[in-house]
């Protein structure tokens, strides 16, 4: 089976590696950073305006892929809720000795609450590991796009991108 966003709906490892929006391994080591998984030239640039530090550039034409400037990105995560494609995440590799923090956009009902233990899933919704919800940001400016932060085992910071919603609701 062919891989890649056009065939699976999931950006492949190659696509992510080649994407100017993905932070380098070195940058990930240094602290929290945005992880932009936007790999197609679509006409869109709210991420560029969203960043208060000028760490994302799209430029002209607006179909350019967003470029992440790792040196300017503070890992604040305000860009996450501003992306109409819900394609921006935040990764804090060394959140603790043993865990990473992953933040992702979440637009389902109900929202998890801080402290909840949730089953976390990858880009195809497959269970990866249990995580602990450390933040749920849903400011008015987000207009319904909540940003959920989960603490997960360090090994899966590149995989976890959502909550396994159905499994979670089954647990109540």
């Amino acid at each position: 089976m062919k891989s890649g966003i056009k065939y699976t709906g999931i950006p492949s490892e190659e696509e992510l590696r080649a994407s100017p929006g993905a932070p380098s391994r070195e940058r990930l080591e240094q602290g929290p950073v945005a992880f932009i998984e936007c790999v197609q030239d679509i006409p869109c640039n709210p991420c560029e305006e969203a960043c208060p530090f000028g760490a994302i550039t799209v430029g002209e034409p607006i179909t350019n892929l967003p470029e992440l400037h790792g040196d300017k990105c503070t890992g604040c995560g305000v860009c996450i809720a501003q992306c109409p494609g819900l394609a921006i995440f935040k990764v804090h590799l060394h959140y603790t000795e043993t865990t990473s923090l992953v933040e992702f956009p979440y637009e389902y009902y109900p929202l998890p609450r801080k402290g909840d233990r949730v089953p976390c899933g990858d880009r195809q919704g497959k269970y990866v590991a249990d995580g602990r919800v450390v933040s749920v940001k849903n400011a008015k400016a987000h207009d319904g796009t909540a940003v959920v932060g989960v603490e997960v085992p360090k090994a899966c910071y590149l995989e976890v991108r959502t909550i396994c919603r159905k499994e979670w609701s089954r647990h109540g």
């Binding site: 637009e107 009902y109 909540a146």
Partner: peptide, 9 residues
């Protein structure tokens, strides 16, 4: 079935 609760609406 009615959609009583909605994350956006």
């Amino acid at each position: 079935m009615r959609v009583e609760k909605h994350p956006i609406l």
